[in-house]
Design a protein around this nucleic acid. Sequence first.
DNA 1: ACCGCCATTGTGGATATCCGCAAGCATGGG
DNA 2: CCCATGCTTGCGGATATCCACAATGGCGGT
Lengths: 201, 201
Amino acid sequence: MTIAHLIDDDDAIRDALAWLLRSRGVASRAWSSAEAFLADYCGEMRGCIVLDIRMHNMSGPELFERMVELGCSMPIIFLTGHGDVPLAVNAIKRGAFDFIEKPFNDNELADRVIDALRIDAERSSQAASAATIEGRLAQLTSREREVMDLVLAGKFNKVIADELDIAMRTVEVHRARVFEKMGVRSAVELAQLLVGRAKTD
Amino acid sequence: MTIAHLIDDDDAIRDALAWLLRSRGVASRAWSSAEAFLADYCGEMRGCIVLDIRMHNMSGPELFERMVELGCSMPIIFLTGHGDVPLAVNAIKRGAFDFIEKPFNDNELADRVIDALRIDAERSSQAASAATIEGRLAQLTSREREVMDLVLAGKFNKVIADELDIAMRTVEVHRARVFEKMGVRSAVELAQLLVGRAKTD
DNA sequence: ACCGCCATTGTGGATATCCGCAAGCATGGG
DNA sequence: CCCATGCTTGCGGATATCCACAATGGCGGT
């Protein structure tokens, strides 16, 4: 379910946002505080977050910080009523999706929310395939990972055998298992699959 | 030469910035308008840019836009005196390095400039190696590129020969030339080298 | 016409990879 | 004690890759 998560302690704003988004076909759910949202938060949530900067207790940036720590990847749109440039700059640099001043233009905000939802949908599918790869990597035994790393370094089985001080045949077996478990048929495909990934992660 | 390029139509600000940076061991050069800077600009310039938002004629954001079009990769630090949040958000999202409000804290600004110079130095070395790779790719003949793409797709020489309707021996020759020109010794190394690169670019 | 560059192909041999078959050894759980 | 899992190794053969040597033909520039 891809919805907009609205977090604002102003009832009127929440209602207005919900109504606005509903009119554009976007589902939403609202919370009246950062704490309330955190209580309901789980990593599987998808969609985007519309977050007021200034709230009782935990502020928008504080919640943002917390979400980053929790590994939340939902795009976050900040709403602010008092144009704090350093805050905005910081938020964007830390990966916030947008930073919009109140009073906002309804259409513009709705457009940004829809953009954010689209971005999240794209990121989710990418994350899913990344998770598949991670799952396959997790199936490898430690020895297989060692061999895989050396294979990815472009070394010959002979060299790998020498470095690990085992027979070449053993390397071949591990290598074949790696290919099988990772679902590839050659070292090149393996390299393609693992582009930009750190060793033995 | 890694220096800070100061662009501001206020003489006092330029002088103050130059003095401040000099006291931190950072060389700088100043321009009194965006046009004057553009007239001197060349793609080989290294360092960072400190740019006032509001200037006669061409404004900071306009110059930024122009620099992006020119492919300038120097980090840009904006200086602004009137906290325009949308402007700041836009600048950061488009890749500006920072956006600092006047009156600024001297040490803080100098720190940011130094950070920017460091980032530029890192990017420059990366760009240099990328340029090396591009240069090597440019040495390949079109046929060699075709073969390389198929090799990177993990296909056997036999299959490649079939697809290109040439003899396997010919594929071997092209393949060897590709390895030689690209400075690698195996298909895996080639894949490592070209991670994230588009086909036949 | 000559030369350089590129694409093409062949032969033959040295290396490497891929893989089924078979098996020994250690470790940890039922 | 038996069994599953993982790491290890050997043998032998089918494939693939790597490479030196050798050669033909097209194309563009001198």
